[in-house]
């Protein structure tokens, strides 16, 4: 399943498609239906309801692939609407949601929005591949749905993997002072720490997918946000001057990671959830 999604995205959403979207962001409806055919949205629906009958541990693997490809669109909201909103499971209906901080992604492109988006106003999104609206403060609901947070963490993990791969690739090939810059410890150690954060985030995300426990999800969210945001920053640093250009893809990783980090709502809330559990845990 993971390999299938990876292959599909490699074929249908390569670098050209990514860069096209930067200039004219849109949800590629054909690709969404192809993802629907591959079971991306219906993965957790029972087979009797036309789904794949798998669970969260498998879902985080395919969301990791989507994050690695920087695939745009309200993927997690649509996945969570499968079986509830007609057409979501097959990728025919694009569903968005009111997420953390009252932010709504892809409101104009979406067919359905879950939650109350009344009075939403457009925001000049920092991420060229994620159009944003924001609902007024009064009409915002409480914290975001736990599964939305977990699937977002899986996307962050995938993007962290991408930044690690990109940094290593650049460090191996870019030469200065007569050798690849990855031979210098200052650069090599940035790359090593990128991998450490990826593997820690991976353990947190995969474990939270097995337990679906809110405390594990809070941990996965914090560590995956860290891996993606910090990873993109360090990847940018490894790329030097090229990393600061519009042409390089690094900024797309960072901006997406920033926007996704807001989906999970308040960081303080996640930290307080984890702190509160320390009071109850039996040691």
């Amino acid at each position: 399943m993971q390999r299938g999604v990876r292959g599909l995205l490699a074929r249908r959403f390569g670098r050209d498609a990514l860069r096209e979207g930067v200039d004219a962001p849109r949800v590629d409806r054909g690709l969404w239906r192809a993802l629907g055919d591959a079971g991306f949205f219906s993965l957790r629906l029972p087979e009797a309801e036309g789904g794949v009958g798998l669970g969260l541990p498998e879902a985080v693997l395919v969301f990791e692939e989507a994050g690695r490809a920087l695939l745009p669109g309200p993927l997690a909201a649509t996945h969570l609407a499968a079986g509830v909103v007609p057409g979501a499971a097959t990728g025919e209906t694009v569903v968005t949601t009111v997420a953390g901080g009252g932010l709504v992604e892809w409101l104009d492109e979406a067919d359905v929005v879950t939650g109350d988006a009344t009075g939403a106003v457009p925001v000049r999104s920092v991420d060229p591949l994620t159009p944003l609206h924001r609902v007024p403060e009064g009409s915002r609901s409480a914290g975001p749905d736990g599964l939305l947070v977990l699937l977002t963490a899986a996307e962050q993990l995938g993007t962290a993997v991408r930044t690690c791969e990109a940094a290593v690739q650049h460090a191996r090939t870019r030469e200065q002072f007569g050798r690849p810059i990855g031979a210098f410890q200052a650069v090599k150690h940035l790359c090593a720490e990128l991998l450490v954060r990826v593997e820690v985030a991976r353990a947190a995300v995969y474990a939270a997918a097995v337990t679906a426990d809110p405390v594990d999800i809070a941990a996965a969210r914090l560590l995956a946000d860290e891996a993606a945001v910090r990873g993109a920053r360090d990847c940018l640093q490894v790329h030097g001057g090229m990393g600061f250009t519009w042409e390089a893809d690094v900024h797309l990783c960072l901006k997406r990671a920033w926007v996704r980090a807001e989906r999970g709502g308040s960081v303080t809330d996640s930290e307080e959830t984890l702190a509160g559990e320390l009071l109850t845990e039996v040691h």
Partner: peptide, 24 residues
């Protein structure tokens, strides 16, 4: 002190994940 609680909450994320990584 919320700063202290948040710091300890982060450490909870850290060590529960290190335990998962150990099991893994």
């Amino acid at each position: 002190d919320p700063g202290v609680r948040r710091r300890l909450g982060r450490l909870n994320a850290e060590f529960r994940t290190l335990w998962r990584l150990t099991q893994w």
